[in-house]
Every structure is written in C-alpha cells, then in structure tokens.
Design a protein around this nucleic acid. Structure first.
Lengths: 168, 168
DNA sequence: TATATCTGGTTGTTATTTGCAACCATATGC
DNA sequence: GCATATGGTTGCAAATAACAACCAGATATA
C-alpha cells in the first residue's frame, strides 16, 4: 500500500468517482486505523499508543503526523510545564466511529474467534446498539443490489453484487 | 502494513478484544479495499480489475488469492470452454457494503473534492439513502461518547473521544 | 496449419516501506 | 549532579510493492 496512488492515469472509477479513494488516502492503512481505534478507546499519549499497539516508534510518529495533517487527530500540549502532549480525536476523527463500528460488527459476524463479540451499549439505557445498516429514506435496510448511484449522463451503472453471468 | 501483526505480545486491547483487528487482517489494506469497492461496482475479471485500478498484476494476483482465502470473493469458471474466470463477491463480501458506504460518506463529508458527492439511491424508489449511523435500540443515533462496551469483570472502559484533560 | 491475440497469471529486478535498535533532548525526581 | 520518563529522530537490515518481461492454454485469423 502506497497511501498515494500512482497518479498516472485516473481511470474511470478510480480517482474520479469515489470518495472511498480519498478516504483511504487519509486513513486507509493498518496502523492508521489501529491508532484511530485505540484513540476511540481513550488512548491519547505517544507512549501509550506505542505500548498498546506494539508499533515501531518511527512508524507511530509518521502515522500520527499524517493523522494530524488530515485533521483526524489534533495535538494538545498538556504539559504542566511544557513537555506532555496528547493526541485527541477531532470531530472528523470521531465521525469515523460508524465506520469502525461497522467494520467491527462485520468481523464479529464473519470471522470466527475464541472470543465472544464485543457488545456495545448505549451508556444511558444499557441496551445494545443495533447492527449498522444502509437505510433507505423510510428506514428500511438496503442491500448492495438494491441501490444505484447517480452517474450523470451515463447509463447509470448499478452496483450489482452477484448478477448475470455474461461477459464483462 | 504487514497484514499480520507481529504477534510478540498480544497487548490488552490488541489481539484480544477487537474484531477490528481480525477484520483488518483480512481486508485492511489499500488494494484489498479497492478491489472490493470495484467488485461492488460490478467488476469481476482479472484484467478489468487490473486496468480499472492500475494495480500491478502480481499484487492483484496476491490480493485476489487472499480475498478468496478469506471467502470475501469466490472464483467462478465462466469459460465457455474453460479459461475464463470471474471473481465475485460472496455474501460475506457483499456484507462489507455498509462499511464501504460509511467510509465513502465520511470521505464525502470531510474531504473536499472538485467532484460532487456520489449520491446513492434506492433502486426501487429513486430516493437517496440515509447517512449510515450507529443507532440505539430505539433507532436514535448514537455518538462515540454515548456508548460503552461490555468488558466482563472490568470497570468497563468507555469509549471517550474527547474527555478530561488529566494525565493518562 | 501457422501465426497472432486474449486471458490469466508467474517470475525476476528494483525501489519503497517497515521494524528494530540506538541515540538525542528536555524536564523532572532523588 | 545523576538517573529516569517522555517524545521523539536517525541508521540499518529485512520485507513489500511496483514495474516489466515472460509463459501457457485457448481461440481467432490467414
């Protein structure tokens, strides 16, 4: 993973259409996602990230720098006299909560593990959160093959997951 | 990104608690996610993935192999006489729809681009899908700081995004 | 039949990235 | 003054990725 695509020819769907590409360019690598996950668990300090994740310090430094540049984290000076820092999630970073939650639920659903799934609860009511879904305007769950994307002045290539067997 | 964590010491939250780690081990790198995205757009053939993504062929081969092993894709022989193959999403793969949708919405919301956001619509009604959210049992949206995780026999470390300023 | 082409790869060969360890600099504690 | 903790940076060996060339079976074309 290069984190920056070789920008030789922005192919039709690649750079052009998709915010997924842009999103992955900012947070789409293993360590960045692990750092964000850890930050959502409350970790804030360089040393704590390093110990909890077992990441090399130079890589951690690099990723933190990237996440600061992307404004997913911000660096706060918490030194009583000036040499303690904390890396905290910004609003943009916190907004990844739904992405990581969807990813975790997917892992719990599809990847067997000795451990039971991590149950997440509403702090106020104590009730478990729902599975994250894509919902239509009425709140009904939508599956991949039920959606189409706006593609102005094109025959609107749908998003089939499993459809005809024909060529291409 | 190594795709497999150096498993020296499974630190408290790392391998132990989190399906995110397991999920990322299967699909958590740039190219795997791009391939899955492309597959959701209808791409199925080796050459088509290669051209549309601009990925090196050996890397594509490696990632397809991984995704087959993870049962995110399955390989279908569509050769009229035996030499055409298609890589199609499995149910497990299609279930990543919500993850990629959440990621794309995040990118559209937070990363400026010349292009307008890609609007996704219910194929049946033509109405735009809702933003993906984490919902409580009553269907009300939950934010990061409103949830806690079950941590049996532990003081239930919450998931604060931005809380006290104290040390550690 | 001979040749060319298309699909679906594999095998090198470099260039980049990672992980490890050592080092540095400031601030504080003993 | 000396040791320790925090928050990094710098070198270096090893693993990965990107690029290009090659290969093999099946059609397609002459």
């Amino acid at each position: 993973m290069t984190l920056k695509k070789a920008p030789d020819s922005p192919s039709s769907l690649d750079e052009q259409c998709c915010a997924i590409t842009r999103a992955l360019a900012q947070i789409g690598d293993w360590w960045s996602l692990m750092i964000i996950r850890q930050a959502m668990h409350g970790t804030r300090r360089f040393s704590d990230f390093q110990q909890q994740l077992g990441i090399a310090r130079n890589i951690l430094g690099d990723r933190l720098k990237r996440l600061l540049a992307a404004e997913v984290l911000r660096k706060v000076d918490v030194g009583e006299h000036g040499t303690r820092f904390e890396y905290r999630l910004t609003e943009k970073g916190r907004d990844l909560f739904v992405v990581l939650t969807a990813l975790r639920q997917w892992g719990d659903r599809w990847i067997l593990a000795d451990q039971p799934p991590l149950v997440m609860r509403d702090r106020a009511t104590g009730r478990a959160v729902q599975p994250v879904q894509v919902l239509d305007a009425d709140g009904a769950p939508l599956r991949l093959h039920q959606v189409v994307v706006d593609e102005p002045s094109l025959p609107a290539p749908s998003l089939p997951g499993e459809a005809p067997t024909g060529t291409v």
